[in-house]
Nucleic acid binder design. Structure first.
Lengths: 201, 201
DNA sequence: GGCCATTAGTGCACAGAGTGCAGTTTAATT
DNA sequence: AATTAAACTGCACTCTGTGCACTAATGGCC
């Protein structure tokens, strides 16, 4: 182990992270006020106090402003899965990883983004496209835990089912807003699937 | 019943369909030759013998050129599911609908498009986003078959699982190109899921 | 402190996707 | 033949995203 992982985080790194956060917040506010399509990158840049050109040093695209915060969350999931117990069924490992990382899930921001996506089918599609990254992260984690090549298809299958369960849970959670806690929705969705599936490992 | 459904298909309608097909073929050829990103709509229009502006009377966007042919296929699936037997488990109805419509699935075009998407992650994402339409179509079909509101969540769950199985099947089929028939891949994927799932209906 | 490499940040010009609009041509209907 | 709707074109425009050349700020190092 080389120097563990704390990393002192330099001033520059911190500034960057904070500005990244700032731009995201400004953007979400503008999206909520005027709609996603009607908000141009020029406006976002102006309201954030930077040049339009410089936006692309923080986000690769307009969509990324909404979805990039999920990237590190997905990465955490992958790592958490990789640290799971190989004796358990794959789905159970994923379930535990999701539930144990739920505290780090930014529910408030997700709710705001869901509001922005409402009535914008193009954005919903992009959101869906982004979910492929969750599935890939799950698969990556599972493949680390069970590196043998012959189990790859089984793990792919498990990652598809898992991300399906998560999507189902999120859907219920967003629909019955505030009626259920996200953790319960996720637990229910996995329960439902685990109950119906005889996970033969 | 008013006039049934045969519809004589007027000359105009037919011309439109043929031109639609023609543009698609031209585009796929260009995409294969020069890549998706490097092929502009202006080139496609020129090679198709129409104006760039007029392309948008056939396709809403560049992506649509690749994905629109799936639209009517998905619609067939939905109708086929809606005609299923309500006594069977939902997953079984979907499985039968997929398998019985497989002859109408344009495998050749799908292979070409898969080739185009290879090494283009943005396009893969868009492809993934498009799959939400299959899931919606499945859910639509199932909801027609079981219109009672209280089973909606169960049907949503089934549509997520089904489209997951289809995606798994397609993945295997594309990976082991020509090694297995698509029908077998689909059957296997559903078998696998139906075997592992105790479909309690 | 002063030098230096790196990173933050700007401005400009450009390409390509997609839209609105005003207009012309073509084809089906009566 | 006249009418009407659809096919089709051209133009000007907006917005996203990129390449490039450039300046400003910052951290490390002597």
């Amino acid at each position: 182990m080389r120097q563990a992982s704390p990393k002192p985080e330099g001033l520059r790194e911190r500034n960057r992270r904070e500005k990244h956060e700032h731009i995201t917040n400004v953007s979400i506010r503008l999206f909520l006020e005027n709609g996603y399509d009607a908000t141009t990158l020029a406006e976002i840049a102006y309201s954030s106090g930077i040049s339009r050109r410089h936006l692309f040093n923080y986000f690769d695209s307009k969509d990324e402003i909404l979805f990039s915060h999920l990237r590190e969350y997905y990465e955490m999931i992958a790592e958490s899965i990789a640290r799971g117990s190989p004796g358990e069924p794959a789905m159970e490992v994923v379930r535990k990883a999701i539930l144990s990382n739920l505290a780090r899930f930014d529910a408030e921001r997700t709710l705001a983004i869901a509001k922005i996506m409402k009535n914008n089918t193009a954005l919903q599609s992009k959101n869906r496209a982004n979910e492929i990254n969750l599935e890939k992260a799950i698969l990556r984690g599972l493949s680390t835990l069970w590196p043998d090549r012959e189990s790859h298809d089984r793990l792919l299958f498990a990652s598809i089912l898992s991300s399906g369960a998560i999507r189902f849970a999120t859907h219920i959670w967003l629909r019955d807003e505030n009626e259920m806690k996200l953790a319960d929705c996720v637990a229910d969705a996995f329960d439902r699937m685990m109950f119906e599936i005889q996970c033969t490992q």
